[in-house]
Structures are given as structure tokens and as C-alpha cells.
Design a protein around this nucleic acid. Structure first.
Lengths: 208, 208
DNA sequence: GTCTATATATTGATAGAC
DNA sequence: GTCTATCAATATATAGAC
């Protein structure tokens, strides 16, 4: 892990923002280096290629997953199941705060570069694994609220899939409703599975 | 609606295939016109710009939705709820038949061009609406299998969201499991909502 | 309506001085 | 490690003959 200051970091930072708002292909290297205040050669001193930058950005997404997505929620929300929905609420915030031009950075990048940049895809897939695993861990903390034998890994993956699909649709129609309604359906699924949690309750949360 | 033969149609056809396998930005106009066997000027005689082509392709997706996705399933599957899952199985086929380089053409395009090409986005959003509406219609045929007051429009949208998210993840990891498991979770949700349909049954299907 | 030829702009990437 | 200058390739798009 590298220091957070420095030119290289500034480039990754700028790229990250541009990529998740405009997409990878739609963003030129020039835009990135201008946003970062770096000269052209400066850029290619730090990165061999645009694909290389893509990898670095993917790795940054993976890092930020813990510090920006999961850790804050872990600290602020006690109930494990409510943590899951708090994470989903975080992605909602990204949508509305960016006027629906950005959703899930990882999902957007994965949708766009799947085949062309195998290295970056590998990192993104690691990130998806981390995402699912974290949610699975929370669900396991509350496993007695789900039916015997419920596959929590698959359920966690389903949460990710719901989020990604909902983000895509909401972004396309530029309205939050598809997102909110999808989360509501997911919530209903959880309830039908037996989870009785409600936003204020937390009968077994936080025992970690 | 235009004739299916003719140069313009050949271009749209070629573009459609390239776009949903490589993406819109990653596909150059040259590739499209070469795949269509059309000269460069020939291309720009029929389309004002690449964005224009994007619109035409989106419109084609919308057309094909009825003829290629919903109509065949309507004819071959009797039970309305099973029709929904038969459609999902169709997208599964796209994934595996293209070795995970293609999933849902509409979803891929929507994820990529959201802001840059408002006209195409409009068409895609129409297509999403048609998709949801068709599924909603099927669910309504089986509405007595769901709890009183179930919002079938939202449920239909949730099916779309699940499919899109699952396609994205399966495409990224190049494995079918995330897709199959997501559909299984959706199936479980339907069961918990009260639907008792099974692949062979159809206790109330096809009364239309 | 299709061809050849070409324009123009932008792209990703390099060379070499300081 | 950062600068100026520049490359070669690719991109979208146009002109004008037939």
C-alpha cells in the first residue's frame, strides 16, 4: 500500500471519479491528467498504459470498499441485517448525489471492460468477492433469523445482484424509484425468510 | 417499420451484434461497416453519426424484444409465472452461448451510454418499460397466487433488476453460477410470496 | 446509392531535454 | 520526476466522382 499523497495517487483519484461518472472508454487519458493537474509524460511515467490505470483504479475501488463502504456502516449500525440495508442506502446516496450519473463504481467498470482488460477484471472480481463475503458475515451474525439451512453466501450474492441491477436501471431512467422499490422487494424477501428486524429494533445485533 | 433487407438493416444488424459483445464505445464504426460489408461513405449515407447508429440499434432491441424474447415464450410456455422464468432462461442462454461476453443487450448499452446519448437512452428506457409491462401482464394472469395487494408492476421490475444484476456479475466472473443462484433466489421469493407453480404443473396457466 | 479518396480530431503513447 | 514537443494510430466524418 502506498502513501495517499503524491502524483500517482492524484492521478488514480481523478481517474476514479471520471471513470465512475463517465465510464472507462468515454474518459480520455488527457481528461484524467488534466483533472489531476499532471503533464502527459507525467502520466505515462506512472502508468504504462490506460489499461494499467484501469487496474490501479480497480485496486483503489477494492481498498475503498472496506474503508468507505463497510467500515462506516459497521461502526454506525448495530444490527447485522440493518447493516446490509445501510450499505444499500449508501449506494442510493451515490445515485442521488451524482444526479444519477454515477452508481456503483465497480459494477460500471465491470460492465464495460469485462473482456478487454483481464487484469482489471480480476481485481474487480476480487472486490465482488470481498463485498459478498462481508455481507455474508453480517448475515451469519443473524443466521438464527433465517430458515435452517439457508445458504447465506448465495443470499449475500443476491443482495449484490439486486443492488447492481437496481443501480443500472435507476441510472438509466434517472429516477430513484426503481432503486427504492428493488430494495423494498429485497426487504420483503428477507421478511418472508423470517427476518423480523426493523430499522429501530436490533434484538440480537452487535454481539460480534 | 422498414424492410429487413437492405444496406441500412445490414448495418444495424452488424452493429447490434458487435455492441452487445464488445460494448458501444469499444466498437469502432469501421468494424461495424466491415462486418456489414459496407463502405465508409455507405455507412454515413445511412447514419449521420455513431450516436445515430446507437439509437437505431436501441430501437432494434426494442423491436426484437417482442419477436425474439416474449413471443416465443408466450407460445411455448403455458403457465404465466413459468413464462417469466423461461424468459430468464433465455438470457442464461445468451450468456453461455457467447461464452459470457454478452448478456442483456439493452442493459449493457444502458450502462454504457446513459448520459452521452439521450435519444438512445430514451429508447432503451421505453424498452425497459415494455419488458416490465409484459412480465407484469403475465404476473397478473396469476395474481391469485400472490398475496392480496401485491404490487405486480414492482415485482415485475424486480425481476428485471435481478436479471440485469445477475447478468452483469456472471459476465464479469465468467461463470454461470451467480446467474443461476440469483434466479433460484428469485424463485424462492416467488414461492414465499405464495406461488406454488412448478415447472411441470400449471394449475391455472393458459386461461388467458 | 455506392465508390475512392481524404479531412480532421482525438486517441494512446514516446523521445529527449532539464 | 517533470517538462516540451511530437508520433503513430485510430476515430469520426466529409467531398465529390460515377
Amino acid at each position: 500500500m502506498r502513501r495517499r499523497t503524491g502524483t500517482r495517487e492524484k492521478i488514480i483519484d481523478a481517474a476514479m471519479r471520471l471513470f465512475y461518472k463517465q465510464g472507462f472508454h468515454a474518459t480520455a487519458v488527457v481528461e484524467v491528467r488534466e483533472a489531476a493537474g499532471v503533464t502527459n509524460s507525467g502520466f505515462f511515467y506512472y502508468f504504462n498504459s490506460k489499461a494499467d490505470l484501469g487496474c490501479a483504479v480497480a485496486r483503489r475501488y477494492l481498498e475503498l470498499l472496506r474503508s468507505q463502504v463497510f467500515l462506516p456502516v459497521s461502526r454506525s449500525v448495530e444490527d447485522p441485517v440493518e447493516r446490509v440495508f445501510a450499505v444499500l442506502d449508501g449506494y442510493r446516496g451515490i445515485l442521488v448525489n451524482n444526479d444519477f450519473s454515477a452508481g456503483c463504481p465497480m459494477g460500471r467498470m465491470a460492465a464495460e471492460i469485462s473482456e478487454a482488460n483481464p487484469a482489471a477484471v480480476g481485481v474487480l472480481n476480487d472486490a465482488f468477492r470481498v463485498w459478498i463475503n462481508e455481507v455474508k458475515g453480517w448475515l451469519r451474525e443473524a443466521e438464527d433469523r433465517f430458515p435452517e439451512g439457508t445458504n447465506l453466501a448465495k443470499l449475500a450474492m443476491f443482495v449484490l445482484v439486486t443492488m447492481e441491477g437496481a443501480v443500472m436501471l435507476a441510472r438509466s431512467v434517472r429516477r430513484i424509484e426503481p432503486y427504492d422499490e428493488s430494495v423494498a422487494e429485497l426487504r420483503r424477501y428477507f421478511e418472508l425468510l423470517g427476518d423480523k428486524t426493523r430499522r429501530t429494533q436490533g434484538k440480537r445485533g452487535g454481539e460480534k
